[in-house]
Design a protein around this nucleic acid. Structure first.
Lengths: 336, 336
DNA sequence: AAAATGACTGTAAACGGTTACAGTTGGATA
DNA sequence: TATCCAACTGTAACCGTTTACAGTCATTTT
């Protein structure tokens, strides 16, 4: 691939002049500029971003680590963030953490080696201390999405998952349910733990004792909704309502329940979490907890851009509040 | 951020030695290696990938351009590709084309400037000629996903969308339907056009005349299923079956039909396209055309890796074949 | 004892850009 | 006419690595 030097020879000018043309420096005569532009076109020249970044010590790039590249949640997050960053004339490099400590660390290393101007991190398993170390020592500003590390409270954008769980279950207790089962995500994820503790708080508030047998841990995947339902039945515990920690699992669970001839919501009320677009298309339409993902993505990108420009980003523990969306999968408790 | 020189000073060795340690060169004594490692740790050293890539002329990176970062189709595609590439010890940089010529070009430029070892391109709007130019002049091998450019047939991995459309509609004609409407994606996308021509072929084969009034162009989004249904009714054309070019739109359309009190499949049969996970959770479960997205992602990554290593990738116009998945949204035609 | 070898380490020239600084013009100003 | 300045262009150092080549030892080999 052609270099600036070849272009300069071809156009009979110095490398400095070519560089000036590339960077839109105004001290170049029109004639020269045209010559250089023609040479660049002729040789198919594309600036080498490595050399450029090396010389300027700027990458014009924001790095993002997320758990899973598929998945509607992250999709929206990425999309919004990318829009915002592209609009600012920069670029986003996305890597996946794959839910393992090693992979998350590797992803961050990759971005750090690429000297990104800022990091947007959605980390599921990396220990707090590691994150703090990166914040302290990497020299790169960072935004923490959907995770609260007390020491980094000023660069966290998080969702109050505890409140989300609470709202979901409170809705059920308000409807008169007292036997409320729950299907959680993997409990090594803070999200899942927080939602579970919201579940407990709502029960407590309603004076209902916490019963371990009503809790099944799963994996946040669609298929993850199926087995847990079977397990609940095998445990022979009764429940008239089910709080499922994300919509994906809820869809799977609803299907299994229907397969068993259970009427929703007459016999079992169901609340999901995330408010995916599909939530309103299943039958019955799913009552769920809405999460402002798009805002999330947009805001994190804006913050990252600000921080990378050394502007103060008054993040101040931005904590989004989830909202309950009531549809048709929940109904008042009725005795059988 | 610390450089190799600082590390070398700190450890009292030369830069070459530090570089050797970084690269695992064996001609370094254990004592020296330990000294260097300690120095690196102490100074929080991370190799500068720019300098490195500049010196070696290798980026160990594969670039990917896709239409939309959200969306279940691309999610899976990215995910599989990333897995494969990470396993090979390389990294994937993903950028979005945003469905505009300018943006797609910009995304490719970005990746080219970053000197990626290969490109995986899912382009919706960039003209063929541009793609050919890139293939010819960029010096970077490329894999074309889901698009067929005759000149680049040997680096295309595509799905036979025409066949997909055909299968969907043939299923309907086989069921006795003769008034079959269709909702297409944006017709500037080759996918949509191909599916539409599959629709026409199936009709022709069944001896049914093509009727423009039964065709509505839409946008591949969920909401995109709603208005077209209304338009069909406003046009006062009768139809007993509906081929909708992706599942997302199908979900929207099913909902609108239900809202109008139309029974599916008794009054209107519906076939979607993509076989998203949700297809089996809606009611009735959606008959649809399955696309091997995961294979797509995996294979494109493997090809890209091979090409970047200068190994021959015998792509040879890899054309995946879609499959019809029959569920409950289609039924034999019955007179009203 | 001299030469050869193997194990290790250092020097310095790339890699492809940017940019401070130093020219070289030609025209305007004193 | 001498001086200055604005407009433009070139030279060369530098960014942080890698790596060919050249050393320096301590062991072996002859």
């Amino acid at each position: 691939m052609a270099t600036i030097r070849e272009v300069s020879k071809f156009a009979n000018v110095s490398v400095a002049t070519v560089s000036r043309v590339i960077n839109g420096n105004k001290w170049v005569s029109d004639a020269t500029r045209d010559k250089v532009l023609a040479a660049m076109k002729e040789l198919g020249y594309k600036p080498n971003s490595f050399a450029r970044s090396l010389a300027t010590n700027k990458s014009h790039t924001i790095g993002m680590v997320i758990g899973d590249l598929s998945g509607p949640f992250f999709g929206k997050l990425m999309n919004e963030a990318e829009q915002e960053i592209r609009n600012a004339g920069k670029h986003l490099i996305i890597t996946s953490g794959h839910d393992t400590v090693e992979s998350e660390r590797d992803a961050i290393d990759f971005l750090l080696q690429r000297r990104v101007d800022a990091l947007i991190l959605h980390l599921d398993v990396l220990p707090d201390q590691d994150i703090i170390d990166i914040a302290d020592n990497s020299g790169v500003p960072l935004i923490l999405v959907n995770r609260l590390v007390p020491e980094l409270i000023n660069s966290s954008i998080s969702l109050d998952n505890e409140l989300g769980g609470y709202l979901a279950v409170k809705h059920l207790t308000d409807l008169g349910h007292t036997q409320i089962a729950t299907i959680t995500g993997p409990l090594y994820k803070a999200d899942a733990r927080a939602r579970l503790s919201g579940y407990r708080r709502a029960l407590e508030e309603a004076g209902i004792a916490y019963d371990e047998r009503l809790v099944v841990e799963s994996d946040f995947q669609e298929e993850g909704g199926i087995a847990p339902v079977e397990r609940l039945y095998r445990r022979k515990v009764k429940f008239s309502a089910l709080f499922i920690q994300n919509d994906h699992m809820a869809f799977g669970a609803m299907n299994t329940l229907k397969g068993r001839g259970v009427n929703i919501p007459e016999e079992v009320s169901i609340v999901g979490y995330d408010d995916m677009v599909m939530a309103r298309y299943v039958e019955p339409a799913l009552t769920t907890v809405a999460v402002p993902v798009a805002e999330f993505g947009k805001l994190s990108a804006q913050m990252a851009l600000k921080l990378s420009a050394n502007e103060p980003a008054d993040v101040q523990n931005l904590r989004f509040v989830p909202e309950l969306v009531v549809r048709s999968s929940t109904a008042p408790y009725r005795k059988k």
